[in-house]
Amino acid sequence: MLDFIIKRLIQVVVVVLLALTVVFFLIRLSGDPTALFLPPDASREQIEEYREMLGFDRPIYIQYGEFMVNAVQGDFGQSLRSKEDALPLVLSRLPATFQLAISALILSLLIAIPLGVLSAYKRNSVFDRISVALTVLGQAVPSFWLGLILIYFFAAQLNILPSGGAGSIVHLILPMITLAAYSVARFTRFTRSTMLDVLRKDYIRTAKASGVPTIRLVGRYALKNSLIPIITLVALDLGTLLGGAVITEVVFAWPGVGRLLMQSLMNRDFPIVLAGVFIVALIYAVINFIADILYAYVNPQIRVK
């Protein structure tokens, strides 16, 4: 188990460093950012002076080396616009993103797992058919559009919820629903099909032959068997959720990492972009890492050797 954890931790580090490297070179190859800082009529001397000041005149491998050395120490430089330190700025936005993503995840699991289980249990019933239709539809709705529609109804028409911003629990409701919608559809569908799969297994027949009532069979036995694939899927989908968070944050002006990242991309404020990529890659890698451990915990074939 310890071997496994160490191996996965090394993988986390590699992933994050590679992500930084790729983005660094992409940015540098895409052009010289100096021009963006100066008025269009800046003289050649001014540009040169500025380049030297920012260090863009040196060979790219030296820039890269220096960047990586600083990056591992948490120094991504300063925002090219506001002159704030990049990493602390990104980190200060992290709690808001976490708040949004975690609440959406919890909401989607709370809805999807009971819905999927019930759907499998009442297979081919009217309830099941409606739930399947909704999940198919839910997977086709782009989340940003759902956000706009929610804003239209609850903010513009009914005027009972704010259309954006943060500060109170009321502000969280619409972004949370928007972000959770796709996951609800996907998790419900997956839970249903996994449960149906498990319910066909020999060991379920064995439990049935022991006189276990159906409710207990579904809720206690089959559910625990289904949890392994469900956890795997949820872990795989956290990336989608994180990606979705970026878009949702923009739609609802939610002050998280995603919105900051978007603004920095717009402004070509690359120190912040790099710090943001670093944080996102790190979070994602760590989530996958935790999911692996959780997976091992649920599955005794891995846990007990």
């Binding site: 297994k201 020999d202 060991y203 379920i204 027949r205 064995t206 439990a207 049935k208 032959a209 022991s210 006189g211 276990v212 009532p213 036995y221 625990k224 068997n225 392994i228 649920v298 599955n299 005794p300 074939q301």
Partner: peptide, 28 residues
């Protein structure tokens, strides 16, 4: 259900797949 596993019980062909992998023997 009151009969199954109580007055009539059954042994299946596949011992490898007939036991639930995520519960202990005692639990099952």
């Amino acid at each position: 259900r009151k009969l199954r596993g109580n007055e009539i019980s059954m042994i299946f062909q596949e011992p490898m797949t007939s036991l639930n992998p995520v519960f202990t023997i005692g639990k099952q």
